[in-house]
Design a protein around this nucleic acid. Sequence first.
RNA 1: GAAUCGCUAGCUCAGCUGGUAGAGCAACAGACUCUUAAUCUGUGGGUCCAGGGUUCGAUCCCCUGGCGGUUCACCA
Length: 574
Amino acid sequence: MDIQLSEQEIMRRNSLEQLRRMGINPYPADLYPVDAYSDEIRTHFEDAAPQRQVVIAGRIMSRRIMGKASFIELQDSRGRIQVYVSRDDINTEEQPEMYNTVFKKLLDIGDFIGIEGFVFRTQTGEISVHAQRLRLLSKSLRPLPIVKYKDGVAYDRFDDPELRYRQRYVDLVVNDGVKQIFEKRAKVFSSLRAYFASFGYTEVETPTLQSIPGGASARPFTTHFNALNIDMYMRIATELYLKRLIVGGFEGVFEIGKNFRNEGMDRTHNPEFTCMEIYVSYKDYEWMMTFTENLLQKICLDVNGTTEVKVGDNVISFKAPFRRVTMLESIKEFTGKDLTDKGEDEIRQICQELHLEVDETMGKGKLIDEIFGEFCEGNYIQPTFITDYPIEMSPLCKRHRHNPELTERFELMVNGKELCNAYSELNDPIDQYDRFVEQMKLADKGDDEAMLIDHDFVRALEYGMPPTSGMGMGMDRLVMLMTGQSTIQEVLLFPQMKPEVKPQKDGVEKYTAIGVPEEWVEPLQKLGYDKVVKLQGLNPNKLFQDLCGYNKKNKLGLQNPSKESIASWTEQAS
RNA sequence: GAAUCGCUAGCUCAGCUGGUAGAGCAACAGACUCUUAAUCUGUGGGUCCAGGGUUCGAUCCCCUGGCGGUUCACCA
């Protein structure tokens, strides 16, 4: 337990004790028979209908007390409902102080209570529950931030992002709309699973802990496996494992899971994030484009009830079909440069003409990627498939059927960002091996994101993989789009934060060890000497003044220590 | 990683190029039987992020550090 409690926390702990003394268990064990919810009570209410009895439960979010009657707002999992509590209704023979003492004095905002009563409409027109019995279900010992709403405007918002993310539970309780984001997130996932299930594809799980991190260009997290005494990596993609399963004979497999990338952290990146990857045999990337646009249209409809969604100032339409543009067309459109049949040196030249910063470690693929990223990507607000990437950028992708310099690949751009990435998967094991070797050369050149050779994956391909199309989608980004959020932190329940650091204080025994009487430890700590070391070399006269002053100001009534004993503390502290 | 802004009561924020702090909500005491940001009266609550410097004196000025926001760069 924390040593330092705020005044309000002490009050609540005192109330807890008093409840126990009154024979009220603040944390009862038995089931509470809830049979109604805030939202449905309102929608089902009819003024003419016979009175409805309900049992509801939730958190007290506000109280308006007027003598013998009160209104509280009770928040359950679906929203809030007003409850009318009057003294003569809830007092009982066993508990005649239920209203005046228990309800008015010992209960607080944040406590969970259960209400039995009937639904009615107040004089001011609000559908409410008239309490006939009230029961404490769980006492809250820490005051919640109080956010008040009127006409949709929030007053005293709890909006410091650090506090909100670190204490998401508080954010969810007090801030309107936060829970809805995560309910929508769940709906995105269930809609996606339902779509895949309708095709008969299988959801699988593959290793998160890998000895060769493959399937993407990214820096991995390293960890250590004691039993084998080897370093291992957190996965950066699921691709290579899922394709092994296509080799094994699945018609279609998909995985929704966390990837981990040891890179930056900002409003669109979290070190762990959720990706969906799907692989379907006997398909190509053309089929996958249609499959993907139908998927997104369905998700948007299921989640928002429409194919349009507002993100920032943009309205994005997920109505299929989406526009399709090849990568070289796109670059030509936005830069005027035609890269068709250009070599690495020519492209590096073009990069310089476009004032792009490039260096010698960049291969042709990466150079083209730079141009696209700088001049094109951000322009695609409406969903647009960018197709036919240069072969150097796509080591796991099949060569284009009409042009061996290109690959059968698409990325889906939405709101200026990549949302999906898909291929006609490379299934030529010899080609695949050679491309891994190319990646190794890039790694030797200094590209620390280049892939390592996964020999087992090549072996799997040697047994034969049917023609396959695969697609990966950033689920967090998808949820951002579907909920209109502009930061990834808003769609992750617990985004990565720097560890919370608590200042460490010395214990009482460290003070008594240098001769400080126990009753003076707290005043010393309050004055800022929370570590014995801080007393070292201090002017005893100043400390004497401070302590006597503190004693007087706070009316502690302690006998002031002598200057001599204070001098001995400061000496012994060293 | 860079620039910039911020850190003051449980929460949201004031605080005059310097004299150890204020408001609203929350809390506490009281009034009030249909209120709804309830209202009215009264009270308490603070290592002003941390450390150092300048000064008789620092929440305020300077330096260093911590944490966070925003913008930018890199990665999905």
